[in-house]
């Protein structure tokens, strides 16, 4: 699995993402700066990591979504390359139009930073194939703008097409229908607020996040 991690000014989970990708795939991911207009050749996976790109100016993810590298990421997604956006990465993918909806300020206005139980809703995606449908897993969240919102038609479509990958198993941030992560129409783009890369070995308090990366390796090689 040849992967790349995009680095924006203000990214802060890029290193964690790179560590788990190397552990699982045995290959060091390429770190790609936001000013690059092209991605390295023959990538299997692009990870858009968490953090506070551009200081969350205007809206979380808004500036990053318009950076040169994101045009290349949108193009790669169109070619079928797997794209994983975590936390700020999820916000960036919605702002870039790769995923529907928007991530708004948490309903309670508080920054939520804790381990949360998630329910795996669809285990048929490349990202979730190592989980069982309906399984509860524990993954940490750390965000201020994780309140997923979309119009009712979009939400119904996401439900109907099995595009809700993860749901919070309990209230977290006010997200519509407790949505924690969704996949794009073609199934090769996943955006999620919780951080699977922060739960990959027992010392983290659990390793439920690791299976997402192992599943990806299995599904895309």
């Amino acid at each position: 699995m040849k992967s790349a991690v995009i680095v924006f000014p203000g990214s802060n989970c890029d290193r964690d993402m790179a560590v788990v990708l190397e552990q699982v795939s045995g290959r060091k991911p390429l770190m790609v700066w936001h000013r690059e207009a092209e991605l390295p050749d023959s990538l299997d996976l692009v990870a858009v990591p968490g953090g506070f790109s551009y200081g969350d100016y205007l809206r979380s993810g808004a500036m990053a979504a318009r950076s040169p590298v994101m045009r290349a990421v949108v193009e790669a997604a169109g070619r079928g390359v797997s794209i994983l956006g975590v936390c700020n990465g999820f916000q960036i993918l919605t702002e870039a139009g790769l995923l529907p909806g928007a991530l708004m300020r948490n309903a309670g206005l508080h920054f939520v930073c804790r381990d949360v139980p998630l329910r795996v809703e669809n285990s048929q995606t490349a990202f979730t194939c190592r989980y069982d449908a309906g399984e509860e897993i524990l993954i940490p969240v750390a965000h201020h703008d994780g309140n997923y919102q979309a119009d009712p038609d979009t939400l119904d479509r996401l439900e109907g097409e099995g595009r809700i990958a993860f749901r919070y198993a309990g209230a977290c941030n006010g997200s519509a229908r407790d949505i924690a992560g969704i996949v794009g129409e073609a199934g090769n783009v996943l955006g999620m607020m919780p951080h699977p890369e922060r739960m990959v070995e027992p010392a983290h308090g659990g390793a439920d996040g690791r299976r997402l990366f192992e599943g990806l390796l299995e599904a895309i090689g």
Binding site: L58, R59, R66, T94, E95, G101, A102, Q149, A150
Partner: peptide
């Protein structure tokens, strides 16, 4: 439409 507002919300 392109940047200043997110017309989803």
């Amino acid at each position: 439409r392109k940047l200043l507002a997110n017309i989803v919300i």
